[in-house]
């Protein structure tokens, strides 16, 4: 079966710093791949290269068998690569519902003419967008908050809204950057449940960057460990836990925790 995402010898440097140094991996359909590594290992840079917010120095990215290395960010989103951000990037002044409808409407069009003269096409597409927004809000525990400005939500709900927004583009591949950041253990447990539900319901392939070991070990089928822009190893959570190189990268050479 074709991999959903195939990254081939990707490199990126900033000035003299090699942020990503020839990394390669594949993600088969339906898999959840966790990416872990110390701060500055290049994890988020990999996400920014896949979604083309950075231009790779060399290497190739294939999505559903097709090379997408040269495509603009919005084209990748339309093809079905959704993402969330390490530091939330919601449209804070827009309402919760608008944050979601905007994502749906980017791929479901009507012409400016239809918008101005309120044709049937306009009504149909807008109605679907709002249905989508309400479905996603219900699903992610944001019911009844549709009219609130996104910036007014508590932190945990903003995280879930960002997930809802990414899901509204109906992605095949979802890149999630540190979903557990700033959450307490109970919220993390809820998040694990949510991500499991999301994956099943939307038939997704997921790549997730995460520092919270409990979360990432629990949910990933495979884990990729990065350090200094390189892949140290890739394996199942059990294999990663045992690996001496991983322990070294995380804890230094002094010994196991």
């Amino acid at each position: 079966m074709t991999a959903v995402l195939e990254v081939d010898r990707l490199t990126k440097s900033f000035g003299g710093i090699q942020a990503v140094d020839g990394i390669s991996f594949k993600v088969p359909p339906g898999e959840t791949l966790g990416i872990i590594g110390p701060n500055g290992a290049g994890k988020t840079t990999v996400f920014n290269l896949i979604t083309r917010f950075y231009t790779p120095d060399s290497g190739d990215i294939r999505f559903m068998g097709r090379s997408v290395t040269h495509l603009a960010p919005h084209r990748l989103a339309r093809l079905g690569i959704g993402r969330t951000f390490q530091n939330l990037r919601l449209f804070r002044e827009l309402t919760v519902a608008e944050n979601i409808t905007s994502a749906y409407l980017s791929g479901n069009r009507y012409s400016p003419f239809a918008g101005i003269f309120r044709t049937d096409r306009h009504s149909v597409v807008e109605k679907k967008a709002w249905q989508k927004a309400y479905t996603l809000m219900d699903f992610l525990g944001l019911a009844g908050k549709g009219d609130a400005p996104a910036g007014s939500l508590p932190y945990g709900e903003q995280r879930r809204l960002e997930l809802a927004r990414a899901l509204a583009i109906e992605p095949k591949l979802l890149l999630i950057d540190e979903p557990g950041a700033g959450m307490n253990p109970r919220e993390i447990r809820d998040l694990v449940e949510t991500l499991r539900d999301v994956k099943k319901r939307f038939n997704l392939t997921i790549i997730m960057i995460e520092h919270q070991m409990g979360l990432v070990m629990n949910i990933s089928d495979h884990i990729l460990v990065m350090d200094f822009g390189e892949k140290i190893m890739q394996g199942t959570p059990a294999e990663v836990r045992r690996d001496a190189r991983v322990i070294e990268a995380y804890l230094g050479e002094e010994g196991p925790a």
Binding site: H74, A77, R78, R89, F91, R92, L94, S102
Partner: peptide, 19 residues
């Protein structure tokens, strides 16, 4: 809606498929 999204955050706008 897209115009308002872009005003708030261009990067996020591109990430949801807005040209």
């Amino acid at each position: 809606l897209f115009w308002r999204c872009i005003k708030e955050d261009e990067t996020a706008s591109a990430s949801i498929g807005i040209n």
